[in-house]
Amino acid sequence: MKVLVPLKRVADPDNANKIKIAASNVAVDSTGLEWKTNPFDEYALEAALRLTENGKAPKQRLGEVIVVTLGPKECEQTLRSALATGADRAIRVDATDDALDGRLVALALKSLVLAEKPDVVLLGKQAVDGDSNQVGQRLAELLDWPMATFAATIREEAGALLVSREVDGGVGTLRVRLPAVVTVDLRIVSPTSVYSAHTDAAHRYAEGVRFAPLPAIMAAKKKPLDTKTLAELAPGAALSTKTLKFEKPPARSAGVRVKDVTELVDKLMNVSKVL
């Protein structure tokens, strides 16, 4: 199986409350925050690796995983760490961050997909900076491919994927025949979430994503990394989204400590009057 995994770098999501607004109000300032791979995209990469191996012998790759990102040269760091984790090759689409929106990213990915012909495009359900949640769905439509968004589990079947999704009110299951787009949710990295056709149903993965051992980090420097440009993949396309203003939400201040449940109930009944 050949899997294409788009990745985005984001400002450290565990310190998202330290994001500042630039004085102009038209940009965010993430100075001091480390760049990290969007967690959902890291999960998508883990799922892609699980789909292209026998879980018992993960060193032997049984398919190809191509990672791609759109952004400036510094984004190659994101690709290199994905290569170290196990991806086979990488593509960077050269673009400045403010020249991109979800529509353009989907258009550029469509061109790449038509060239690379993967069986599956596997990506995070959303990037945790813009929180837009649109690229996977848009890409599926542009390709006229079926999609399964918010995947919690994936089972490879002959020519298809059986995907369970966490939806409002329960768990929905879809079967998508390949090629298809799958966007992943948090639970996709659980020990029993993803099984390729080669992995025994009794196999249990370690919880979470795998880490790159040091030799792999060195070896990743030699793996192929191609560069393309946004102009060649999405010629003539312009932004359709402009952010006119950024602002911080009103701060919520800490209230009072209560000494016991009696005082708590008093406050809720008599001060806040919510009971």
Partner: peptide, 20 residues
């Protein structure tokens, strides 16, 4: 129309214009 939407886990709100 201007769309106000939370970003960065609700730590920033962006006011967005769509041009289509």
């Amino acid at each position: 129309l201007r769309y106000k939407r939370p970003m960065y886990a609700g730590n920033v709100f962006g006011t967005v214009e769509l041009t289509t």
